[in-house]
Design a binder for these strands. Structure first.
Length: 419
DNA sequence: TCTGGGGTCCTAGGACCC
DNA sequence: TCTGGGGTCCTAGGACCC
């Protein structure tokens, strides 16, 4: 059967969220920064037109920002997460076959649907009316081509934000004018290497011999080439596998030089990671802790290290994870450095009903642990206050810079916009 | 002065098995 | 002097995604 995929992708998503409750920013240049106000991670069209690149550190373009009075925002993930949920909910009205691919995009399996372009236009106008965020829709027989169609819909205004690539002739036309770097799965390295052998457009890549691609690159790239030719290799996946790894890490607003403060931040990350783990209803076997100085600091000595350890048995109990994380931290801590970032990773997961219990721990004790962690999570999510473990540092004074944070308009009573 | 925070998948190579 | 052939598992590192 012929497959049909649609990719719905929000336009400049974070910027659109910031504009939602600030309509006066509609035709004004807007950027959103990464955590710690470091890099630019979202740009409105006006900013793209100024030639400001994605992921560039803010300080490098400060002159342009000031000159054009660009409105600058710190990331407000509470807001973006909520708006994203609304977009996805609205999309579910159009098909139950929805794969939420990232915070701002989703694949829809529209196999068997007709009048695709009309349907896509309806999706666009509905999302805009119900949520207020502009989206573009790309339609094609494979996900990679749907991505490409979406690129076309965004790039060429005359398309009205919808491109249907069901027709192979139209595919070819778009492939011919698309730089190979825009293809899903082709990153910086591959772009460079492809350029050396004269492959500069998506069409040239699509016309390459798959055996040659596999030999010189990988099966991943081979799949990309096949997908560009309309052969489905990347399946639709509306019930993703549970996570295999959970990470919690941050760069610091200010460098940390003393043992106890860095230890407290590591505990903070470990506790947060354990909480995420319980949210996934999984147990972790392996814990990894890393600390590092800034790789950009020219004058300070550099140090970066990590340590990995295994829990006696898989657990999601914050106390077990904290105990191991602090032990690992002590094994890599070095005095005399200016630390810029640290983090905790959990891995090697299993589900609670698969775990091999410790011969020497009575089952009743296990049940108690679970209840204690549940109680902690319930209290911390209630909004009524916080409880934490001894090693943590509840006052997050080491935390990130967020100088331009907008209100949590849709998720806090005291931040509701006034009309 | 100032450089994000998550994830995934694949491959190569080493250790080890019989 | 001659030194097999077939595997598995694990890890580190590199590429990619948003």
């Amino acid at each position: 059967m012929n497959r049909t995929f649609a990719l719905v992708d929000c336009n400049n998503f974070y910027c659109s969220c910031e504009r939602l409750f600030r309509p006066e920013l509609k035709n004004v240049p807007v950027v959103v920064l990464s955590n710690n106000d470091g890099c630019i991670v979202a740009r409105s069209q006006e900013v793209k037109d100024l030639g400001i690149k994605m992921a560039i550190p803010l300080f490098k373009v400060m002159d342009l920002i000031k000159k054009h009075q660009v409105q600058v925002f710190s990331s407000n993930y509470t807001l973006y997460g909520d708006i994203s949920a609304r977009v996805m909910q609205a999309l579910e009205e159009f098909t139950p076959n929805l794969e939420v691919y990232s915070i701002d995009e989703a694949f829809l399996d529209l196999s068997g649907f007709s009048d695709l372009e009309e349907y896509a236009k309806k999706i666009r106008s509905t999302i805009y009316q119900h949520v207020g965020v502009p989206v573009c829709v790309g339609i094609a027989p494979t996900k990679t081509l749907a991505k490409l169609a979406n690129y076309g819909a965004k790039k060429f205004k005359l398309t009205g934000g919808v491109v249907d690539l069901s027709d192979p002739e139209r595919q070819k036309k778009l492939l011919a004018i698309t730089p190979v770097s825009e293809v899903w799965g082709v990153g910086r390295k591959h772009t460079e290497n492809l350029k050396k052998i004269g492959i500069t457009t998506a069409l040239k890549l699509a016309q390459m011999d798959t055996r040659q691609i596999r030999r010189h690159y990988s099966v991943v790239m081979e799949r990309t080439v096949r997908e560009l030719n309309g052969e489905t290799c990347i399946e639709f996946d509306d019930s993703p596998e549970p996570k295999q790894q959970i990470m919690c890490s941050r760069s610091f607003g200010e460098r940390i030089t003393d043992y106890s403060t860095l230890r407290e931040t590591v505990c903070e990350f470990a506790a947060r990671a354990a909480e995420k783990l319980r949210g996934e209803d999984q147990l972790a076997h392996v814990v990894n802790v890393f600390i590092r100085t800034s790789p950009f600091a020219k004058h300070d000595p550099n140090y970066s290290n990590s340590a990995t350890g295994k829990l006696i048995q898989p657990s999601s109990d914050t106390r077990n994870i904290l105990a191991l994380a602090t032990k690992l931290f002590d094994s890599i801590w070095m005095d005399g450095y200016c630390y810029a970032k640290a983090g905790v990773m959990l891995g090697d997961f299993c589900s609670p009903d698969q775990v091999q219990f410790d011969l020497f721990t009575p089952k009743a004790a296990e049940a108690h642990r679970d209840k204690l962690m549940q109680a902690v999570d319930t209290i911390n999510h209630s909004g009524q206050g916080q409880i934490w473990f001894g090693g943590q540092r509840p006052e997050k004074d080491w935390f990130m810079k967020q100088a331009h944070l907008s209100p949590a308009y849709t998720t806090r009573w005291d931040s509701l916009p006034l009309v």
